[in-house]
Design a binder for these strands. Structure first.
Lengths: 179, 179
DNA sequence: ACTCTTGAAGCAAGATTTTTGCTTTAAGGT
DNA sequence: ACCTTAAAGCAAAAATCTTGCTTCAAGAGT
């Protein structure tokens, strides 16, 4: 049982924070459980018992960082909203840290909900945009369609294809959907 | 220098085969370097020196297994060819072993070419289909478009969204592209 | 054919990480 | 205040990973 405010919660916070700090200090590649434990002021066995292994822990931390902090900006129309959102999404996710978080999130337990959470975040953001458009009386595609034709291609390129991704790519996807 | 037929090549083969065998025996989750080394009749340090760590090795093996063995079937027309290919692709990739290979492939060095190779395989297959259609005189989309609107959505669902994927999904993507 | 060179493999010791049984702590319930 | 219990600490044992040095064998040069 996780008691909010209890010891468990404090330990979890400390460990997550230790991971973020160490990542920020550039130790991305050399992160180890004992190192994280030391920084968090916790025993390694606590981490092994709670998370199982480093991948699970990194996956948890990554998902937290991928959670959007603000609702998508309102630019007055569906096309503008979606384009702005897609462009920002692509920009954040294709940056080196963004890519690292996505990979980390995917590497956790295959049957866990971490990867699903990422997609849920995107779906929620898109949903907000579509709901606004609906209220304005604009015709809107459904969320699934947007995920398939805008989000998925961006993610696919980020994960599977080397090379730069320009903002224009996001705009192109959106306009080929709405056009 | 890798001399084909030389000792290096034999060791590589033996190690890859050991991984495949052990995976087939169900030890997916408990695979370790010493275990693989023992099965391959090789010293663990050989594996560490050649691959660096288990992730790199699994990634290499996964990419090999993801290489298509046969060119896409010719069904006489672009739509039929693409549908059949997409359906089979989805079927293979969304199966538990398929998903595991994809994840393993992504696991390797982010700057390595393993993930890129996966996408290249798909692109090659699509290319064959499109080239055939061109020769028949059919109008064809370009490879990028097919990757964006057919391959990417399937991969996105496989990686990020839990739940079953029906063959109809692949067909729907193809027909919404060509329709 | 016979060395010579060289990159990779083997070996073994040492360092580090991971697991595990048991003890202690502290949050929440009675 | 006193139980109950899930989670944390501790420490020893097991396993894995690293590393310096040695040995091997494929291919090149003579």
């Amino acid at each position: 049982m996780v008691r909010p405010g209890g010891r468990s919660a404090r330990v979890q916070q400390a460990v997550h924070e230790a991971v973020r700090d160490l990542e920020a200090e550039g130790g991305r590649e050399t992160l180890t459980v004992p190192q994280i434990a030391a920084r968090a002021g916790v025993t390694p066995s606590t981490i092994y018992r709670r998370w199982g292994d480093l991948r699970e822990l990194l996956s948890d931390v990554a998902v937290e960082r991928l959670r959007p902090e603000t609702p998508p900006e309102d630019r007055g129309g569906l096309a503008a909203d979606l384009e702005a959102w897609a462009e920002q999404f692509l920009d954040e996710m294709s940056s080196p840290p963004g890519r690292a978080y996505i990979r980390d999130a995917l590497l956790g337990d295959p049957d866990g909900s971490n990867a699903g959470q990422c997609s849920a975040y995107a779906a929620d953001q898109v949903d907000v945009i579509l709901a606004r458009a609906t209220q304005r009386g604009e015709p809107v595609p459904d969320v699934e369609t947007v995920l398939d034709s805008v989000v998925a291609p961006m993610m696919y390129r980020i994960l599977f294809r080397p090379g730069p991704l320009e903002p224009a790519y996001a705009r192109r996807l959106v306009s080929s959907l709405l056009g």
